[in-house]
């Protein structure tokens, strides 16, 4: 059983991380459950742990001058869902996590660091090309979240690094879509989730992206499939739709109930693109 530390500043936490390799524990909604031992017993971890929930340096949600939004690693889904500066896709995902108490305890840093294929926040963040800021005694590193999450429960986090924040670059979409499919409306782990967005000007699709959650070992964006749609005209959507859906289907790799996940993903993407083709009003496609 490893030691447990409670650093009171980020600098102290970085020293502990570098010297002992202690893993950060914030909300505990994943780690405390994974290592639980039962009534009256404290969880045990086979590695040293540091409780970082008190670190002020990792709090807060800020809008920068360039329009990007930075979310501190300790921001909870409740704070994220209630923030009017956080982009819509991310607020939707945060609002759909667990139930009230979980949304008050969990953290964005934990949701990313745990890298569960069913984690709700990485999906919209990867759609929005978010960066993750990693900090260590060596300094700060900025990295695309899509590159940081390597696979199921695997990240590129180094032994001396801590997730400090997530930065979402500015964007303005003409059309947005978000859907989480779970067994219930509360306390549901995602069976499947999808975000999509498009920028359309004068009939031309200037930007198009999608991100599939719970459809493979990590969130899936297929940049080559997106390129089939990007740059086309709205009236050409029917012509390229099948090819796009085919390419997206080839990119995802759902491990269980693959027919269901593939079919539902196809239907959601088709619905989003057909709505654009059919002249849907700009805004949220529901």
């Amino acid at each position: 059983m490893g030691m447990t530390y409670i650093p009171s500043t980020l600098s102290e936490a970085l020293h502990l991380r570098a010297e002992t390799g202690a893993r950060p524990l914030a909300g505990g909604t994943d780690m405390m459950v994974q290592s639980k031992r039962g009534i009256g017993l404290a969880p045990e971890f086979p590695y040293p742990v540091m409780i970082i929930s008190g670190l002020e340096e990792l709090r807060g949600i800020t809008k920068h001058e360039d329009g990007s939004v930075e979310i501190g690693a300790l921001a909870s889904p409740a704070e994220i869902a209630a923030s009017d500066i956080v982009p819509w896709h991310v607020r939707m995902a945060a609002a759909g996590m667990g139930a009230v108490a979980l949304r008050n305890s969990a953290t964005i840093g934990g949701n990313i660091g745990n890298a569960s294929p069913k984690g709700d926040l990485p999906q919209p963040l990867i759609l929005l090309d978010a960066d993750v800021i990693l900090v260590s005694l060596r300094g700060e590193t900025k990295m695309k979240l899509d590159d940081f999450i390597l696979g199921s429960k695997k990240t590129a986090l180094k032994d001396d690094e801590i997730i400090r924040s997530v930065i979402i670059p500015p964007h303005e979409f003409t059309y947005s879509f978000y859907r989480k499919i779970g067994m219930r409306r509360a306390n549901a782990i995602s069976k499947l989730s999808l975000s999509a967005a498009a920028v359309v000007r004068d009939g031309e699709i200037l930007d198009f992206r999608a991100a599939s959650g719970a459809s493979g070992p990590k969130v899936i964006r297929s940049y080559s499939a997106e390129a089939i749609i990007r740059g086309r005209r709205v009236e050409d959507i029917p012509e390229v739709l099948d090819g796009f859906l085919e390419a997206w289907n080839a990119a995802i790799s759902p491990h269980a109930m693959p027919q269901y996940r593939r079919n539902t993903t196809r239907r959601m993407l088709s619905h989003f693109l057909s709505s654009i083709h059919d002249g849907a009003e700009a805004g949220i496609i529901s």
Partner: peptide, 29 residues
């Protein structure tokens, strides 16, 4: 004991939380 059922709900600094998955080390102050 997994933060799913809400029976252990308490209010921490004004917000509802499940006390079965919060380490006491996280409630300093």
């Amino acid at each position: 004991g997994e933060g799913e059922c809400g029976a252990c709900s308490v209010i921490k600094d004004g917000r509802l939380v499940t006390s079965c998955i919060i380490p006491v080390g996280a409630v300093n102050g």
